[in-house]
């Protein structure tokens, strides 16, 4: 009975979501090259760099202490790599892509994904003209710092016993995806405050619209994350999955 009612709620939420949204322009994904004024570009770079350095040190240490985790890290990196290449259509009539950060952050904690996420962004900025070098600080802060931190915090809900393991994983992936794009709109809003209404109006303009585009993608990312986890868990891929047996 519990099961059925849960599905009814989900179906109702989805239906209302689809009916509330209509085609409109949306503003998301990474900030394009040159599109942040120099002082803001510098500001976000400055804020991002300490996180990256800590992340790099943690990554090196983890690899030294647990070389057997290398394989899973490659998997987490590849997951982010694939998902950020997939531009998925959304109900708003525009496309955006998921981040894939939540999976690795749940497995390894936030710091490893700071480095991995940054590398993916760098690849896209250099080869695909997607995002940019001047805006890399801002984009990495939203996707590779805020994303993993949110995912990791949400994932703690499971450790506290508040929600089941897979629900925590789903929420972690989903919310870190959304948080990334909320951060992006904050960054755009402070750089381009609206002539009337200022930063807040500008933020609402950026966030209100793009969040809608990102919602189904965030849910999709949550699902894909749980799927990969299920695979790994059924093969008891590593000690990381042992505690989960029978859960």
């Amino acid at each position: 009975m519990m099961r059925t009612s849960r599905w009814v709620v989900i179906a109702a939420l989805l239906t209302s979501y689809f009916f509330l949204t209509n085609e409109q322009d949306a503003y998301a994904m990474h900030i394009m090259e040159g599109f942040l004024p120099a002082k803001w570009a510098l500001f976000w770079w400055g804020l991002f760099l300490p996180f990256f350095l800590v992340g790099l040190r943690r990554l090196v240490r983890t690899l030294k202490e647990h070389p057997e985790q290398k394989l899973l890290m490659a998997l987490a990196g590849a997951f982010t790599f694939v998902l950020s290449a997939l531009k998925i259509p959304s109900v708003t009539g525009s496309s955006s892509h998921p981040t894939g950060i939540g999976f690795g952050a749940a497995l390894f904690g936030p710091w490893v994904m700071v480095v991995i996420g940054t590398l993916v962004l760098l690849f896209q900025a250099l080869l695909l003209a997607h995002g940019g070098l001047t805006t890399l600080g801002a984009n990495a802060l939203s996707m590779a710092v805020v994303g993993p931190l949110v995912a990791f915090s949400v994932y703690q809900l499971h450790r506290r016993g508040l929600v089941s393991h897979r629900v925590a994983l789903f929420l972690a992936a989903c919310l870190s995806d959304l948080a990334t794009y909320v951060t992006t709109s904050v960054q755009l809003a402070v750089a381009f405050p609206a002539p009337d209404g200022g930063v807040l109006a500008s933020f609402l303009k950026f966030a209100g619209i793009f969040a809608i585009t990102q919602v189904p993608l965030a849910v999709t990312e949550g699902i894909l994350t749980v799927m990969v986890w299920n695979w790994l868990a059924s093969y008891q891929a590593s000690p990381l999955f042992e505690r989960e047996k029978g859960a």
């Binding site: 085609e23 322009d25 503003y27 998301a28 900030i31 394009m32 259509p89 959304s90 708003t92 009539g93």
Partner: peptide
């Protein structure tokens, strides 16, 4: 959203 072109949201951010 049939009929729309599903353009990238980053291009639209540029316009915004």
């Amino acid at each position: 959203a049939r009929g729309s072109e599903f353009g990238g949201t980053d291009d639209q951010a540029e316009r915004a």
